[in-house]
């Protein structure tokens, strides 16, 4: 009896809902044009800002990449010289490889450190106050400028720097370690130092939203800590990892100043090529390099986004 009653009321509700939609549809018929116009108007300011400050500059860069350059000026033309020079020089490929190498190594370290820090904050610190306090502690280095944080490594790592003199006085080494500064080591070290927080924040954010009962369920089902991590936490943290990855990869691929200072101008990535070209007034050549870098990073991020549906998770 009760079941019949329920299914009846269900049917009535559905019918009511249907009628409601119809009414909506009728009124919407008149208001449709208005709504579209308002929608467009609402989107317009942002669209305009993006067109002026994002789309136009990029279009300009693409256009200029086909131009020609003299010693002191650039002139409109449709030349493939810039791309030809870029794509036929083996230096370009080596620099590309270097750019990816820095991105990959930095990504691995920032992920490892970022994930560990986020995991500790999210699951080992019980009180929200402490979580917030420790999280803010992580951001303290970011109160000074990027460049200062980077440059302060130089006296620390130098031949007669603090690191070497400490190691020597401790008797660990006899000769100063040359590879500490102006090497790939120092470049990656600075990158990891600068960008780990960009990994911590999104991962911490997704971890905080994991339903704790899922972990309890895993434990109740007899999973070890490692299994819980592997089969519950990591899969649920993927969107955070992916966002962090995009941050770190995009930042490292586009960097020029860290590579310049920490390698003592000895190593190069794509950003350095662009910087050198600009410094030497070769804007078209710089634009061509920028276009190729942009396309590469877009393909990379496109691939990453296919692995995880970030939109679903946000």
């Amino acid at each position: 009896m009760e079941r019949v009653h329920r299914s009846l009321s269900d049917a009535r509700r559905r019918a009511l809902a249907l009628r409601h939609t119809e009414t909506l549809g009728q009124t919407a018929g008149a208001g449709l044009r208005n709504n579209t116009v308002i929608g467009w108007l609402l989107a317009a300011p942002l669209a305009l800002v993006l067109v002026v400050f994002l789309v136009l500059p990029i279009v300009m860069i693409v256009v200029v990449s086909f131009w020609g350059a003299t010693e002191w000026s650039i002139y409109p033309a449709f030349l493939f010289d810039n791309y030809e020079f870029l794509l036929t020089s083996d230096v370009t490929y080596r620099v590309f490889f270097n750019t990816f190498k820095y991105a990959a190594i930095t990504w691995a370290f920032t992920l490892l450190i970022g994930f560990t820090v986020a995991y500790y904050l999210a699951f080992h610190i019980r009180s929200l106050t402490w979580q917030i306090a420790l999280f803010l502690l992580c951001t303290i280095p970011f109160l000074t400028s990027n460049i200062i944080r980077m440059i302060s490594w130089i006296p620390f790592l130098g031949r007669n720097g603090i690191a070497n003199s400490t190691l020597i006085s401790m008797g660990v080494i006899d000769e100063p370690l040359e590879w500490l500064l102006f090497s790939d080591f120092s470049v990656v070290l600075a990158f990891v130092h600068l960008y780990t927080l960009f990994m911590v924040v999104p991962i911490f954010n997704t971890m905080m939203r994991i339903d704790k009962s899922l972990i309890e369920a895993a434990v109740d089902a007899g999973a070890t800590g490692w299994q819980t991590l592997r089969h519950v936490i990591i899969p649920l943290t993927k969107p955070g990892i992916m966002i962090g990855t995009i941050f770190v990869v995009a930042l490292v691929m586009g960097d020029f100043i860290t590579v310049r200072f920490m390698s003592g101008s000895q190593s190069a990535n794509m950003g350095r090529l662009i910087q050198n070209d600009i410094a030497l007034l070769q804007y078209p050549s710089a634009s061509a390099t920028a276009v190729i870098l942009l396309v590469t990073v877009l393909i990379l991020i496109g691939t990453l986004l296919r692995l995880v549906d970030i939109r679903k998770e946000l």
């Binding site: 010693e71 230096v91 350095r272 030497l280 070769q282 050549s285």
Partner: peptide
């Protein structure tokens, strides 16, 4: 100096720095 082949030199210089 600024040479007649300056643009070529500049590109080669860029490669030297990147090498």
């Amino acid at each position: 100096s600024v040479m007649d082949e300056n643009q070529y030199m500049v590109r080669k210089w860029n490669e030297f720095i990147a090498a």
